[in-house]
Design a protein around this nucleic acid. Structure first.
Lengths: 111, 111
DNA sequence: GCTATATACTTTGTTATACTATGTATTTTG
DNA sequence: CAAAATACATAGTATAACAAAGTATATAGC
């Protein structure tokens, strides 16, 4: 079969959806980068490479959709915690509307 | 607000979803390129640029997921009709599984 | 004590793909 | 007769996921 095609397609699907997922996850809870990867891997079946997440978080910060703060640990490496900004919440609202619409459209096409 | 971000995000979401949508549309019906754009615009709210569709269809043909045939018109420009190949159907099955999973995961995260 | 693994963040280079813009050609509409 | 719609095509640009590599600390096994 065409394994490369499907593999590649999955990676393409992540463009956009990852941003959307991350922002939604941060809606109710602060997380640090490594934790985000773990949480999403556990609760969904989506694998996020570190080389994907950290640049993504920096983009979100540049866009001022998320804020970050370093938190020193009693033991171990300091963690950078991310939280949604006001702009992030507003943007997420728009994204949720678009996604709901898209999801319905696709569902309609599939069945 | 951050309009550019959302606009850009929508374009990113299309990467991957477009391929998925096109293949699903072709599952039950043959269409020609221009018609695909129209059908999808009417039935969903997804806009596909011509400069997006035609290269996409060529990729799908190179990957042997779709086949195409020119059909002369009694009047007007000949149309290139696309249909799914066997490989296309199998690939689509895999994609549908992944999508269903992703959709559930996102739904779980959003609620 | 040493090594491997896990944690935690970063950067560089590559690749795939949507989009803008432009072009060709035919047909229909005002 | 000009403009818009139909129908396909391509070149160039921008974006984002990913692999791979690196830094640094902590822990578990031998």
């Amino acid at each position: 079969m065409n394994e490369t095609f499907v593999t590649n397609w999955k990676s393409q699907v992540k463009k956009g959806t990852l941003t959307f997922i991350i922002l939604n996850v941060l809606k109710n809870h602060e997380y640090y980068g490594y934790e985000l990867i773990e949480q999403i891997r556990k609760h969904t079946e989506i694998e996020i490479a570190e080389g994907t997440l950290y640049p993504l978080m920096n983009r979100l910060k540049t866009e001022e959709l998320v804020d970050s703060k370093w938190v020193e640990q009693e033991t171990g490496i300091p963690r950078k915690y991310y939280s949604l900004t006001e702009a992030g919440i507003e943007t997420l609202t728009q994204m949720n509307i678009y996604w709901e619409n898209l999801e319905k459209s696709i569902k309609k096409i599939i069945q």
